[in-house]
């Protein structure tokens, strides 16, 4: 999956999660920009992303993410890697 696609689908996920249809994710969006994106919400986001994208994150990867762009890149890399593995 392309990073751009991953970011667009991630935006949908964030909108559903935070109940805010006006929310827009850019690669530079950080937790500080999204009200409610705290450590607790992050766990929910990761597990929901695992379900929607069909990937599994390592916990060390969660901690390394600093913005939405890195989140999308990680998903893009993982979906690519898992597609190749199949």
């Amino acid at each position: 999956m392309e990073t751009v696609t991953a970011l667009a689908r991630l935006t949908d996920l964030f909108r559903d999660m935070f109940g805010d249809d006006t929310l827009i994710l850019t690669p530079e969006t950080t937790a500080a920009d999204v009200p409610g994106w705290d450590s607790m919400a992050h766990i929910g986001l990761m597990v929901e992303a695992e379900r929607r994208f069909g990937v599994t994150f390592q916990t060390v990867e969660m901690e390394e993410l600093t913005n939405a762009g890195e989140f999308a890149t990680l998903i893009a890399r993982k979906t690519g890697a898992e597609a190749r593995a199949r």
Partner: peptide, 8 residues
Amino acid sequence: PGLAGPKT
């Protein structure tokens, strides 16, 4: 149901 923002 899991963590779902305000709907948790």
